[in-house]
Structure formats: C-alpha cells, structure tokens
Amino acid sequence: MGNKGNVVEARGLTVVRGTTTALGGVDLDVPSHQIVGLLGPSGSGKTTLMRSIVGVQRTTAGSMTVLGRPAGHPELRRVVGYTTQAASVYADLTVTENLRYFAALLGAHASDIERALVAVDMAGLAGRTVGTLSGGERSRVSLAAALLGDPQLLVLDEPTVGLDPVLRRDLWDLFARLRNDGVSLLVSSHVMDEAARCDRLVLLREGQVLADATLPELLERTGTSEAGEAFLALIEARGEEGR
C-alpha cells in the first residue's frame, strides 16, 4: 500500500446526519507524505469527514478510497491512526494500561508504548490514572494511542485544542517529524495560525470544500496576509457569487 499518489480520494461524498447535510458532495484529494490541515468553523463537517475516512461514519452517497482501498476496509484499521475530538481513552485505567490495550489490538510491541509516550511528552505520567489528568494531558494520551503500531495515515481531530502555545508548538514539531518519516497526516483545527504549519489546507464550510491549496497559493488568490483573513475573503467572495 506504499502508493505515491493520494492517501485519500473522495468523490461526491455526501453525508446526511439526522436532518442536516453534514457533507454535501465533497471532492477531496489528500496527497501522501504531507500534513494537510482541515480548517473550518464549528459545524462545517470536519469531524464528519474524518469519521468517514476511518470508516465509522455511515455515508449517504459518493465514494471514498483510503490508501487505495474503499474507506472502512478491514485492512485499513491497522494502518490508519485516529483520534476523536474528545479524548477517547479509559478514564479508570492508567496511561500505560490504556496504551497496553490499544497496542494489543494493533499487535504492536510493548516497547512501542514507551516510544509513543515519549513522542507526546507523557512518559513521566505513565503510571497515573487517566481520570486524574488534565484535559490536555488526556488528549495527549489519546494521541499516543494513535501513534502505536505503524500507521501510514494519521487522522487527528483537533489534537491541539486546549493546549498551551509551547505544547502546541511541540506537537506540530512532532507532526512534522512524522511527515518526514513518511507518514501522511490530516489534522483538523479551527485555530487559523496553525495553518502555517501545514503543507496544504482544505477549507470546509457548511459541508462544502471552499478551498484546497497551499497557504501561499491561498494568500495570493485572496490578496491577504494570513489564513484567517483568507478564509473570510473566500466566504465573502462566495456570498457575492450567490447574489
């Protein structure tokens, strides 16, 4: 599955959740060996798109391939790491007990646990019960669990939310290292200044892809100087078209 092209390809992906159309015909290519930032306001469909990629979202129409296989294929569960938006770890287990379980499911070596904990700077708290950790510490345990095994694609739903600037910088450094080691990453965020750390940006709004470009391209196209402004400019341009 070491394909050079795209790690995710979606065509006309439509997801209706309850009465809302969370994704309305999304076409998307996520190139391999890059950090792709998935940006967009609350409710724009970021989580829905990520859930579709990892195969836990019921989709309504359209197609999606991940690492050359249909999204949700059993073979993908070993090579796609996923963190949900809220830290999905067991609060009544210690950090190590949590990771030991997820490592067992992935068939990962016990030594992998130490590596993952060091990567997220949590080795010092390995023996603590997760329920006694702060929100940011918990989300890093959740991230460590996604690093276990040998993931080729990481799908991370707002991994830096609630973290201080230093930790956020450290995590983005980690993402860059992973990318250099050949991992592809899709990272959602609604902190626009994190856009500068991404190789590519996908801007999502009301279930539609507003833009899919590099940051410099985006700034040039909109004549702005940072991602947040570019995003607003794109929304206004859309509004004018519609009028």
Binding site: V89, Y90, L105, L106
Partner: peptide
Amino acid sequence: TSGTLERLMSLPL
C-alpha cells in the same frame, strides 16, 4: 458515550 467505542471500531477489533 466516552468515544472509546468509536475508536475501537476504527481499530482491528
């Protein structure tokens, strides 16, 4: 409700 089931369903379990 904790989201761990969602994570498990994305894993080879």
